[in-house]
């Protein structure tokens, strides 16, 4: 195993732990919606996304149409195309077409966040290591949750709900401390997000996130052009 792969795994460990706790909840939800633990785990393995899966299970349970499924998945997951585009700008030369086809499977919010905060270019081995361990956490959490959701005490599983958000703060706060432009962008985005959450509830959370991110990043780009 290459050292880049191992480095990717170690950087992906907090992601995997967070995923385990979140997908545990997804597993419970999927079984309550009438899916088998195996079906729930296959969804986690093939989709590797949180909000899209939760919405997908709702549509399956309701016997919705495939068109509805397609539109919901497109809307909720559209943010990934922005993240993919952003990551495409920092890929190492080793990233040939087959590697790009393979690694794009694993671009999630958290993997994107960790990858984009890395100094320098991304190698395939590094991304594979991170995706590998994160997928293990995500799929195993789903399976365990679906099979044995009631075993874990409620106090433990609910406290685990904050893990991923704690990680997000650990990613955005240190650079915001160094660069006031980043502080501006995250503050604006947070204010807009609060506005959507409390004032414009009719906008779905997937769309709201896209709008907040695009407005704040565009404002940052206009007011504080980034030189590199």
């Amino acid at each position: 195993m290459s050292s880049k792969f191992i480095k990717g795994m170690s950087h992906g460990l907090p992601v995997a732990l967070g995923y385990f706790s979140v997908s545990f909840g997804f597993g419970i939800k999927a079984v309550m919606s009438g899916l088998s633990p195996v079906a729930a785990s296959v969804i986690s393995l093939t989709s590797l996304t949180s909000a899209g899966q939760a919405a997908g299970v709702d549509i399956i349970a309701a016997g919705g149409t495939l068109l509805e499924m397609i539109l919901v998945q497109l809307t909720i997951n559209l943010r990934y195309s922005l993240m993919s585009l952003s990551l495409s700008q920092k890929l190492d030369k080793k990233f040939t077409m087959p590697h790009r086809l393979l690694a794009s499977y694993g671009i999630t919010d958290e993997i994107f966040a960790v990858c984009s905060s890395q100094p320098g270019l991304l190698t395939p081995a590094y991304m594979y290591g991170m995706i590998f361990i994160a997928a293990i956490g995500w799929v195993s959490g789903t399976f365990v949750g679906a099979s044995a959701g009631e075993i874990l005490p409620q106090s433990v599983s609910s406290a685990m709900g904050i893990v991923l958000y704690g990680m997000f703060l650990a990613i955005i706060i240190p650079p915001a401390r160094k660069e006031k432009s980043i502080l501006f962008v995250i503050s604006l985005s947070a204010v807009l997000s609060l506005l959507f959450y409390y004032a414009f509830r009719f906008v779905s959370s997937g769309f709201a996130m896209i709008i907040c991110a695009v407005i704040s990043a565009a404002a940052g780009a206009i007011l504080f052009p980034h030189k590199d």
Partner: peptide, 14 residues
């Protein structure tokens, strides 16, 4: 610049 700020904006909103 927009793509540089996007990750921070996304994570903050999330």
């Amino acid at each position: 610049s927009f793509l540089y700020y996007i990750p921070y904006a996304v994570l903050s909103a999330m």
